[in-house]
């Protein structure tokens, strides 16, 4: 099985308006592969920053981030990009689909970084969209989709290249309850049936109920990890 996520002594500060803000403070954290984690905490607790570090979108000031056995601090910008393409799928609160491309084109975009043929890329993207229930929306542009459909399209894009890790930042934040439930159900399925390691940042306790484990952060420090029983989920 793929290695999980290890953070050792990770710190991250930002300087805003001349003031230095410590977002993550000497954080140690270990997460198992193949699990579904919810990352919770108040605003400013460092959830999104942690997600960005694990997804190699950002680099820590100090400490080590090891994901899937790869120490991300050893990789340069291009190597980090390659690593992201191969190992991580992102799901954002604001969906982050490219507005000028159709759903199918958005989903097939990460496959441009693979060696797959054009036909194979198309086939895979179609399959991913079918998986999220958007088989009849493939040629639609993002603005022609509802919020829930956009997020499902984003999930299809996140999993189309079959990454081991799925990082979701408030994926249900902009959705109504029904759409949010569909998205959460989809994430649970991806975890349970495809074995994806999922790390989901959320404020919503209802969303966090979908996870197996809930990681609590506050002021850049780990408060604890709570395990949820299968019955509770």
């Amino acid at each position: 099985m793929t290695s999980g996520i290890e953070l050792k002594g990770v710190s991250k500060t930002y300087t805003r308006g001349g003031e230095t803000l410590t977002v993550l403070d000497n954080l140690d954290l270990s997460m198992e592969a193949g699990r579904f984690y919810a990352l919770m905490g108040p605003s400013g607790s460092g959830k999104t920053t942690l997600l960005n570090l694990i997804g190699a979108l950002d680099v820590p000031d100090s400490g080590h981030v090891v994901v899937g056995g790869e120490d991300l601090g050893r990789l340069n910008r291009d190597e980090l990009a390659d690593w992201r393409a191969a190992n991580v799928g992102f799901v954002f609160q604001g969906f982050n689909l490219i507005p000028v491309l159709s759903a199918l084109e958005n989903v097939s975009l990460p496959l441009a970084l693979t060696k797959l043929s054009r036909a194979e890329r198309r086939e895979r993207a179609q399959y991913a969209l079918e998986l999220v229930g958007l088989a009849d929306r493939m040629s639609h542009r993002p603005r022609q989709l509802s919020g829930g459909q956009e997020q499902r399209c984003a999930i299809a894009r996140a999993v189309v290249s079959d990454p081991a890790f799925l990082l979701a930042d408030e994926p249900t934040g902009d959705l109504d309850r029904d759409s949010a439930d569909q998205v959460l159900e989809l994430l649970r399925t991806l975890n349970s049936e495809l074995g994806k390691t999922i790390l989901m940042v959320t404020h919503d306790p209802h969303a966090a109920e979908s996870a197996e484990r809930v990681v609590q952060l506050d002021k850049g420090r780990l408060l604890g990890i709570a395990e949820r029983t299968a019955e509770a989920r």
Binding site: R84, A85, A86, I98, L113
Partner: peptide
């Protein structure tokens, strides 16, 4: 700019 951020998050390189 935003689309460029999306491309980079997906793994497209600076090049």
């Amino acid at each position: 700019t935003h689309d460029i951020g999306i491309l980079k998050a997906l793994g497209f390189s600076d090049g």
